[in-house]
Amino acid sequence: MQVQTHVDINSEWGIVAARQAGRKLAREVGFGSVDQARITTAISELARNIYLYADQGQIKIEEVAEGGKRGMKIIASDQGPGIKDLRRVMEDGFTTSGGLGAGLPGVKRLMDDFAIESELNQGTVITAVKWLR
């Protein structure tokens, strides 16, 4: 049975709840303490982005299995303003230089797979997966 958790993000409490759920699942899936902290940081950043730029959205975390690999998937979705220039926000030094934290390039580095889809005035969906080694 695959574990799935949804957390609504509309306050900083939501961010903490998402972190908590993420850390718990990461531990259950079997990640070590460093990877647990990485996954949690990734969730934290994604949830913060929702909270700061889209007001509200959702973090979904689930266990995944594919071709003998096991891992954990994070899906962050919102119905916010969307991102105009994806290439720009994925650039190193773009968000961090403004002191906003790890930013999306950071999330990409913390995880193994990363995908982003964004539509102006529709919202953004970010999917990130970390695989067990």
Binding site: S33, A37, T40, T41, T96, G101, P105, R109, L110
Partner: peptide
């Protein structure tokens, strides 16, 4: 646990 959490940020800055 706390130190690890803080170091993740430094790790990201290092990779960047």
């Amino acid at each position: 646990d706390l130190l690890l959490e803080v170091m993740i940020g430094y790790g990201l800055a290092y990779r960047e």
